[in-house]
């Protein structure tokens, strides 16, 4: 993709029934940059990602992917346009093996070349025949990311990838994100501020359904502290 915004969210409002949880959220994600969204539990980060990916219908607002308006598309159409969303819950299909999980993504995206997946996540190679139910949290996160990078991938939205993982696995993931960043635009929701600081080219801070700060300079990102800012 050319320079400029890979993904743009304009004045997004989202409600669950009567209760409104996202207020006029506007965010810009530059191509080939790592953007990190931080904020306390309940700030609306997951809601924002789900609405971008088409799993929630925004009351108003628009989503533009590389110049194409994708608001209101069904989730599978959004995926086929190259915007992938990796949910927070770290659940893969428990009754399907790692291989079958990858096969489904290959089938959907018509990309049967797994070399890229195994380059980023070599550990998956040994787990091909294991069922999803028997994978660790870190392995499931790697499988979800592996599935997501098959086929056209312009933007990867990842919701709290390091949550609940051991520090060594977190380091593996951070390394993988650094490599991935040169191939696609990354949007991470991250509560682990050390990880956020290490990866972020720019950072959005959300509070009670609103975007309250945007830090695009190193100094600003480095100075972010949990107690003070979140």
């Amino acid at each position: 993709m050319a320079t400029g915004a890979a993904l743009q969210v304009n004045n997004m409002n989202v409600s669950y029934g009567e209760s409104r949880v996202l207020f006029d959220a506007s965010l810009t994600f530059p191509a080939s940059a790592v953007s990190v969204i931080v904020g306390r539990n309940g700030a609306g980060k997951t809601t924002l990602l789900k609405a971008i990916a088409g799993f929630l219908k925004p009351g108003s607002g628009s989503v533009v992917l590389g110049g194409d308006e994708i608001t209101g598309l069904r989730p599978y159409q959004v995926v086929r346009k190259g915007l992938k969303y990796i949910p927070q819950d770290k659940e893969v299909f428990s009754d399907l093996t790692v291989r079958e999980n990858l096969e489904l993504a290959s089938y959907a995206m018509k990309d049967h070349d797994w070399s890229k997946v195994l380059r980023y996540f070599p550990k998956l190679q040994q787990l091909m025949h294991r069922k999803g139910a028997y994978l660790s949290g870190g392995e499931r996160q790697m499988l979800m990311m592996g599935r997501a990078i098959l086929g056209k991938t312009h933007v990867l939205l990842v919701d709290e990838p390091t949550e609940g993982l051991a520090p060594s696995i977190v380091q593996d993931l951070v390394a993988a994100f650094k490599q991935l960043a040169s191939h696609c635009t990354l949007v991470l929701v991250e509560q682990n501020l050390a990880v956020a600081r290490e990866l972020a080219d720019q950072l959005y801070l959300m509070k009670e359904g609103k975007v309250v700060a945007h830090l695009a300079d190193r100094a600003g990102i480095e100075s972010l502290a949990f107690e003070k800012d979140l």
Binding site: P75, V79, Y107, A108
Partner: peptide
């Protein structure tokens, strides 16, 4: 079959199946 696998995946979680890019 791949369609059979998609059916099994969908029985577990339709949204996650669609999230792979499958027209459920």
């Amino acid at each position: 079959t791949i369609v059979g696998k998609a059916i099994r995946a969908g029985i577990e979680d339709v949204d996650k199946t669609e999230g792979l890019g499958i027209d459920v």
